[in-house]
Simulated scan of single mutants.
Amino acid sequence: MQGPARAVQPDEVLKDPQLETRARDLSKDLRCLVCQNQSIDDSDADLARDLRVLLRQRLVAGDSDAQAKQYLVDRYGDYVLLKPPFKTTTLVLWLGPLVLLLCGIWVAVGFYRRRGAAQGETEASIPLNEAEQKRLSKLLANERKR
């Protein structure tokens, strides 16, 4: 049997080690709805405890792993899964980060293009005064001699 998780309380642990192992394995894939990016196995939130107890009740009642997990999904939606399935209702969860990354790249490229064009215009549009022109001519002459 696996070692006890930090959040699982002694009164939650099932007497049957096989059922407890199944419950632990399942609870690692279920999201704490309060903590969001923490499994119910790791979360100390009251709702996570309630979900752990509910999951164990379903297993003791004879549900398979898939049935117990589906019961929680039916009750709380795909959001309760740490790895939601790829389907139309979860499309934003899967493609959202990619779309945001592409938008960020597009904005950055546009910014640097405009910045480069603006710098080129600024440098080309400022005429040199007479002293700068003489200095530039000397520098170029010295460079040609090398």
Rank of each mutant, 00 (worst) to 15 (best):
D16G: 01
G116K: 11
R24T: 09
D50H: 14
V107W: 09
Q38F: 07
L30D: 04
A7L: 07
P97M: 03
R56Y: 03
P97R: 08
V53H: 02
L59S: 02
K28V: 11
D74K: 06
R49Q: 13
D78T: 13
V34H: 11
F86Q: 07
V73S: 01
D25N: 15
L33M: 14
M1P: 00
T21I: 12
L14Q: 01
D65V: 10
Y112H: 11
I40T: 03
Y76S: 07
E20N: 11
M1W: 05
S27P: 08
L100W: 07
P17G: 00
R115H: 09
R115E: 11
K87Y: 08
G116H: 09
Q36W: 13
L81T: 10
L102T: 11
L19E: 02
L19G: 03
L81I: 14
D63E: 05
A23M: 08
A61P: 00
V99E: 02
L81E: 06
D25T: 15
I40K: 01
R75D: 09
K28N: 12
P85C: 08
K28G: 13
Y71V: 10
T89S: 14
D41L: 15
R22I: 13
V80F: 12
L81K: 12
Y79Q: 09
K87A: 15
A61S: 05
L72Q: 00
P85T: 08
A68C: 02
